[in-house]
Design a protein around this nucleic acid. Structure first.
Length: 328
DNA sequence: AACGTACACAACCGCGATGTG
DNA sequence: CCACATCGCGGTTGTGTACGT
């Protein structure tokens, strides 16, 4: 660490100490409230923001008469009170997107959240920790291990895609009790699932309100626009388009680093399981997927609509194969 | 009914980055 | 350029609730 940096660190530390002291003083003076927000506090915050707008959270908290820190107000607004916050179960489509984006970017929750309209980084983070990490624990492997990531890539995600497509296909004919159980997007307007669309995926994306776009460059860290939906959503896009972005097939992203554009230069093996007939074309490192395809055909609609229903004994077998191949 | 446990989600904390006067 | 205030992110903890024993 050079002198400049060290000096900066020292300055930062002392500044943070001062901030903490100030916060403690303020807390003692104002008897700041902590913990769950009351309805009255929510109303006060909403009314104030409606009138005065958001930002300058510390002064906002004071001016609104809330005995909360600015930080707390900001968090409450962004994660709960904001009118465009979507609540409720994470849909299959959203699960798929989370898995995909997390495989690319790691724990960059706010970045991932940008691609799930209405979902907050906190919600996605909670989803990952409670659902995905739970399965990693059950499979007795590290959530960051190549084995676990391969299981996601070659088993869970293809299953999600299949279930989404199946549900969308069923959606174009009629609603059934089974479909309703397996699909979480049936509350969406039926006109958006019109059979005139060239494929199911566009409908899937529309139903999920996802930024479904063949031109969407998820790989770019410097696209020149901070707006994730700057590009137009094409109604003619299909799932193959959306997922044809170069995805490292060789596990080289397992270091958790954010990809640069250059990272994709060697990706001759794109994720072909999203290319329409993915279940035929996919080849997992150990050739397992093809063997398991028939089994999956019979299994992956069964159960609920969460990740919970997507893994079973074959995942453990898959992990074992992975471990053999990698001589672990 | 009482208790313990697991789970989901809300909220907080620490820290680096950024904005501003 | 500096000091300070504020923002925003990711990690962690707290809390309410459903479920099992």
């Amino acid at each position: 660490m050079n002198v400049e940096k060290r000096s900066s660190v020292v300055q930062t530390q002392s500044r943070q100490e001062m901030e903490m002291e100030v916060e403690v003083e303020v807390e003692m003076e104002m008897e700041l409230r902590r913990g769950p927000w009351t309805v009255e506090e929510d109303l006060t915050l909403m009314n104030y923001i409606t009138t005065h707008g958001e930002g300058r959270w510390n002064s906002l908290a004071r001016c609104a008469g809330l005995k909360r820190t600015g930080k707390s107000c900001r968090l409450r607004w962004l994660n709960y009170l904001r009118p465009d916050v979507r609540r409720g179960n994470i849909t299959l489509e959203e699960q798929l997107l989370i898995l995909e984006l997390h495989s690319r970017w790691g724990n960059r929750w706010s970045k991932i959240a940008q691609y799930l309209p209405g979902r907050t980084d906190n919600e996605i983070k909670n989803y990952w920790r409670t659902r995905v990490q739970k399965h990693a624990k059950q499979l007795k492997c590290d959530v960051n291990s190549k084995q676990f990531k391969d299981t996601m890539r070659y088993l869970w995600m293809p299953r999600l895609v299949e279930r989404i497509q199946a549900a969308a296909a069923a959606n174009t004919t009629r609603f059934t009790a089974d479909t309703a159980a397996a699909s979480s997007h049936l509350t969406l307007p039926p006109q958006e699932t019109g059979a005139s669309l060239p494929g199911n995926a566009a409908a899937i994306a529309n139903q999920a309100h996802l930024p479904f776009n063949s031109n969407l460059d998820l790989t770019s860290e410097s696209s020149g626009s901070s707006e994730p939906f700057a590009t137009q959503i094409s109604p003619l896009s299909d799932l193959a388009d959306y997922y044809s972005l170069p995805v490292n097939h060789n596990g080289n992203d397992d270091d958790g680093h954010v990809n640069s554009n250059n990272d994709n230069n060697n990706d001759s093996n794109n994720w072909d399981y999203f290319q329409g007939g993915y279940s035929d074309s996919i080849t997992s490192p150990c050739g397992y997927f093809n063997q398991a395809a028939d089994f999956q055909q019979n299994q992956w609609y069964v159960g609920g609509d969460s990740l919970d229903s997507l893994w079973n004994v074959e995942d453990i077998y898959f992990l074992e194969q992975q471990m053999k191949n990698n001589l672990i």
